[in-house]
């Protein structure tokens, strides 16, 4: 397992869930993401644990892209990954936000 943390500036405030909300499932080629309120309204945080070693650069690019394109200020994302592709990562994160905003 490999893990890292990332904090990024956020363009717009997100809607933090009252309780930590979990989306997705840890299974081969997939991931789960836990969304919680973070400490700073203009930043968002990521904690990633992944079975795929040596892809931190790719992760950082995917997460920066996601943060730039979504309302994620004040949110904290904790990810358990079992080898999801960048496309699946982006999709799961977007789905998580969508579900949160819908609820």
């Amino acid at each position: 397992m490999e893990s890292f943390d990332l904090e990024l500036p956020a363009q717009a405030p997100g809607i933090a869930p009252a309780d930590a909300a979990l989306f997705g499932v840890v299974s081969s080629g997939n991931l789960e993401v836990l969304v919680e309120a973070g400490p700073l309204p203009d930043r968002c945080r990521f904690h990633v644990e992944t079975t795929a070693h040596g892809f931190t650069d790719v992760w950082q690019a995917v997460l920066a892209d996601f943060a730039a394109g979504h309302r994620v200020g004040g949110l904290s994302f904790s990810i358990h990954d079992a080898g999801a592709t960048p496309a699946v990562v982006s999709l799961r994160l977007a789905q998580a936000l969508q579900s949160l905003e819908a609820s």
């Binding site: 397992m1 309780d19 930590a20 909300a21 979990l22 840890v26 789960e32 919680e36 079975t51 358990h80």
Partner: peptide
């Protein structure tokens, strides 16, 4: 719930992925 982060230390010890619930 998942916010409690009650994950399995035994999976982690074997390098296997864990889940928040």
């Amino acid at each position: 719930g998942p916010g409690a982060r009650a994950t399995s230390p035994h999976l982690a010890a074997l390098g296997a992925p864990v889940s928040f619930d």
